[in-house]
């Protein structure tokens, strides 16, 4: 064996070790969530934990029912979707269909840039500008509500949705459009009957990833959702989504106690939800690529 061959073996070995150690961290996340989260299921019971309607973790005796938190997340996410889907997809359609080459070259990077604004900045904006505005408009005791969180989260997810949806639209082959124009369809008909269906699964991937981002977002909801851990009745009630419960309470939960385990269990559920979303997005986008004849 010569020197070079040994060197070669060593490099391969180093890369294998490094690669597996980074995988070790990534797998570690799942292990930690399971290890620290599952004890609460034993104490409280899985269904009682998931569907219990009272979240009073610091009372004596405590109540660990996370239904209000789950509903809080769902309300806020649903509201965000109502904001970000029309705005994001509409903007993507505009960029792809109506904007000229130069306009698009200019606007696409700006939208991508806006997607990188940190969530805490959105949260801050929500607190100082949107909150007083909502409070005055709807004459509320507090402007920190599900509506506020929905608006901010929706706005925050818009650039992401727009960017991914525009990518999907740009993959639609030009020949599809030309075929439609050739039979006398106008641009709008071509757009709604040919382009959108062709890019449909790509656009749904964008929406699912936007949802995934909204449901997992922490700082914004922590700052503007109001933080009341009760089942919300209207969009003008304050809510406490799962992420903000974790962020707000972890600091006070004694390590190893029920509350601590309960928060990890919430994180575990959150992890599984986003995992499922991402898998769905992955499957749909794979089909999309196959449908348009792009490599899988």
């Amino acid at each position: 064996m010569n020197y070079k061959r040994i060197k070669e073996k060593i490099y391969k070995w180093i890369f294998t070790v490094l690669a597996f150690s980074s995988l070790f961290f990534l797998v570690g996340i799942m292990i930690v969530l399971f290890k620290e989260g599952t004890p609460i299921f034993k104490d409280v019971g899985f269904f009682k934990f998931l569907f219990g309607s009272k979240w009073y973790p610091t009372y004596e005796p405590p109540d660990f029912g996370i239904l209000p938190l789950i509903l809080g997340s769902i309300w806020v996410t649903a509201g965000a979707i109502i904001v970000c889907v029309p705005l994001g997809v509409g903007s993507a359609l505009y960029l792809n269909e109506l904007a000229g080459f130069r306009q698009r070259q200019f606007l696409k990077p700006i939208i991508e840039l806006l997607a990188s604004i940190p969530s805490v900045v959105y949260g801050f904006f929500g607190m100082v500008i949107v909150t007083p505005f909502l409070q005055k408009t709807f004459n509320l005791p507090t402007g920190l509500t599900a509506l506020n969180a929905s608006l901010i989260l929706g706005l925050m997810a818009t650039p992401t949705v727009c960017s991914i949806a525009e990518d999907a639209l740009s993959y639609v082959p030009r020949s599809f459009r030309e075929a439609s124009f050739a039979v006398g369809a106008n641009r709008w008909q071509t757009l709604t009957r040919v382009v959108i269906p062709a890019a449909g699964s790509g656009i749904s991937t964008a929406i699912i990833l936007g949802m995934s981002r909204a449901i997992g977002e922490t700082m914004t909801v922590l700052m503007v959702a109001g933080g009341a851990g009760v089942i919300p009745k209207t969009f003008l009630d304050p809510v406490r989504p799962m992420t903000s419960a974790i962020a707000a309470e972890m600091g006070e939960a004694p390590m190893g106690g029920d509350h601590y385990h309960a928060l990890f269990a919430i994180a575990l559920i959150l992890f599984l939800i986003t995992f499922v979303f991402n898998i769905i997005a992955e499957i749909i986008s794979r089909r999309f690529r196959i449908k348009l004849g792009l490599s899988g």
Partner: peptide
């Protein structure tokens, strides 16, 4: 790919 979509607060707990 999936881990890129995991909520950041989960990383915090880890």
């Amino acid at each position: 790919n999936n881990l890129a979509g995991v909520p950041s607060v989960v990383f915090g707990l880890f």
